[in-house]
Design a protein around this nucleic acid. Sequence first.
DNA 1: TCGTTCATATGACGTTGTCACATGAAATGC
DNA 2: GCATTTCATGTGACAACGTCATATGAACGA
Lengths: 210, 210
Amino acid sequence: MTLSSKLPGVVTRAETAAATRRTLIRAASQLLDEGGPDAVTLRAVGALAGVSRGAPYGHFESKEHLLTQLAVEAWNALADDVEQLRADLDADPGARLERAVLGLIAVARRQPHLYALMFSIPADAPAAVDAAGRLENEFLTLVADVVGEPDAHRYGALVLSSAHGIAGLELSGHLAKDTWGVGVEQLVQMLVDAIRLGADGRDRIVRQPD
Amino acid sequence: MTLSSKLPGVVTRAETAAATRRTLIRAASQLLDEGGPDAVTLRAVGALAGVSRGAPYGHFESKEHLLTQLAVEAWNALADDVEQLRADLDADPGARLERAVLGLIAVARRQPHLYALMFSIPADAPAAVDAAGRLENEFLTLVADVVGEPDAHRYGALVLSSAHGIAGLELSGHLAKDTWGVGVEQLVQMLVDAIRLGADGRDRIVRQPD
DNA sequence: TCGTTCATATGACGTTGTCACATGAAATGC
DNA sequence: GCATTTCATGTGACAACGTCATATGAACGA
């Protein structure tokens, strides 16, 4: 390898390429947030990133690959958040799970188009599997702290489904508070309560005469 | 009005127009089911309906209006299903609610693209409000039979959210059984059980020493 | 029978994703 | 240090798309 970076500030070709790639992703993300999926055209992405309309093809196989990368990074960012949240040991398990669910919903509120994109990408793409798997494991651990190890998977699926449903219904406008008389925060609380109750209340109920 | 239908089989212009409109909707629905959103181009819709590419503009203001109509009819069809299901008086409330939730999920499984379309249409469009409102009311009644009137709205929102979440996660491929060890049917059962338990178990738990 | 209405057909325009090719600078080999 | 290669980028081109303006022809009302 030659010392191509002879001067400070002078970067190698690989470095500038990586930087351009990141700039493209950032531009796509911004366009998605501000104007929705229709606003994300490769021409607009290129323009916002300061390159030509064909330049993205040097970094991404197609527009779909660029969007997939966007979704993968969103999955990872959310997994990072939940992972960080799990480090808060002073909160009780139920409260931590509640905050994790609200974290998922927060993405849907803050970046609705990105959230929708996360779930419209083929879930079997290797990168997507890894990223989504991280988040799933985080939730699994949080749920296990609430309902115990043996029921963690079952209730984990239920919690994640419900959380996703609340988020989705909220951002599609079908969760108006004046219709249901309940806000998202309350719903999440009800969900966690129901999980906790369902898990440790099962025996109690079964033993009880019906 | 003249007797333009002088002969049997000879239809009026208004009738043929209405028929064409329905044919267009059916064509769009078929294209959506078979090829996803990208396959629904007005040109393809026109071709499948046996008209030209511009003909749809005589019946729909834009492509988006056509898709909205598709979504509205899907909402209404689902509401019809649940309404019919509510007439089954021999099933107990919990079982009926369970079947209603499974009905929602069945649409997601049978016509995934249509299901996604239902929730990606602006929820404040008058026609969409009416159609979606019908389904919401149906669910509200079903949930009321399980948890009682005062809690019906709160738990109705939770049930609908969770049902939508299960459906969404399922069709986006994030609910693989070998990951969570639980199938959709079991999840729905858990959900209804948790609702029932949460509603009538609340007092019991509160009274209990923690 | 004669205008009128209106669903449909067609040409056209701007935009999109994508490919083929050109260009020029960085990287590499000697 | 120079020649060659590599490769990110720029540009022209193409088909397909949504949409509009306009033309056409058949069904309508009188």
